[in-house]
């Protein structure tokens, strides 16, 4: 079990993290989700031992590792830009963590070679061991970085924006593949992302961060359906914010004659499996977005309709940053 307790970090005068508390169960797949500057990468690097907290502790299985250097924490870290050693072959990259061990703990040469081969198979790069990182595609490099981190048999896998540098298609394939790999290996893993879709799709639990604080920890279902703060509500999925303080998701509106709010329709277009209607509340001129089931007939542009909310949330102003 990983426990993060009251972690605080400042960079000069800039506060990066304030009193972060977090517990992660063995085998969990955790997403740290937030915009840039939310402190998510700093938190990941503190857990890894690449950055030092000003206050607070990190515990691995009950042991305080705050003073243990990164090389002895037994964590696998996958860097955003992969940080592959470009003068080494793919196989040498993967074997690096084993070859730098002291002779006493270092496996035999043949064993290291076999281990690298096995990991190449795991990341589906058989036969590419003698290539150099520069000769691989982005997605392949990503998997080499992962194999290299797995080679040291880490107790915890940390990934910094693992799909950040990839294009959309590769990203999607790799996402699915990583989820399957995690299921097979059951390795406790934490990844950082600013992409809510990625977090919702992959993680067992999502930690939503903003301005160095944790806004909410919950399953993807919880953070989407029951956002704890206005920030979470807007950052995870789309939300209309009405002048009266209600936060309503586009698909929680319905167009109905019995509705209370009148909307002038400005634009209608198809968005995935539904219609997206953009309009303005007649009273306050607030822009609202409404989803209409694809099987129904959408309103026409210029028309005035009345809408009702099936579900709405309000947040106390303390959480409403």
């Amino acid at each position: 079990m990983i426990r993060v307790q009251n972690i605080t970090k400042r960079f000069g005068n800039y506060p990066a993290l304030h009193g972060i508390d977090l517990e992660i169960q063995p085998g969990e797949f955790i997403a740290l989700l937030g915009p840039s500057g939310s402190g998510k990468t700093t938190l990941l690097r503190i857990i890894a031992g690449l950055e030092f907290q000003d206050e607070g502790q990190v515990y691995f299985n009950g042991d305080d590792v705050s003073d243990i250097p990164v090389g002895k924490r037994n964590v696998g870290f996958v860097f955003q830009q992969y940080a592959l050693f470009r003068h080494m072959t793919v196989a040498d990259n993967i074997a690096f963590g084993l070859t730098v061990r002291k002779a006493r703990r270092r496996p035999a040469k043949a064993e290291i070679k076999a281990r690298a081969e096995e990991l190449l198979r795991v990341v589906q790069l058989e036969g590419l061991g003698q290539r150099y990182p520069g000769q691989l595609s982005g997605g392949q490099r990503q998997r080499v970085a992962l194999a290299r981190a797995l080679a040291i048999e880490p107790g915890l896998l940390l990934l910094d924006e693992p799909f950040g540098a990839l294009d959309a298609k590769v990203r999607k394939d790799l996402r699915r593949w990583l989820r399957d790999l995690h299921k097979q290996m059951g390795l406790t893993s934490i990844f950082v992302t600013h992409d809510q879709e990625e977090a919702l799709e992959l993680a067992d639990r999502v930690v939503v961060m903003d301005h160095g604080r944790i806004d909410q920890i919950g399953t993807p279902e919880q953070v989407y359906m029951e956002p704890a703060t206005a920030f979470v509500s807007h950052f995870v999925g789309e939300t209309n914010r009405l002048p009266d303080g209600r936060h309503i998701r586009p698909h929680d509106f319905e167009i109905t004659a019995t509705g209370s709010d009148r909307v002038i329709v400005d634009n209608v277009f198809r968005k995935g499996g539904s219609w997206r209607v953009e309009g303005r509340l007649t009273e306050t001129d607030t822009i609202v977005e409404i989803d209409v089931d694809a099987h129904e007939a959408p309103p026409t542009i210029g028309e005035t309709v009345t809408i009702a909310a099936r579900r709405a949330r309000t947040f106390s102003s303390a959480g409403d940053r």
Binding site: F52, Q53, D54, E55, Q57, D64, S66, D67
Partner: peptide, 8 residues
């Protein structure tokens, strides 16, 4: 015992 409540 917490090893490092505050870093110098």
């Amino acid at each position: 015992m917490p090893s490092m409540t505050t870093r110098k």
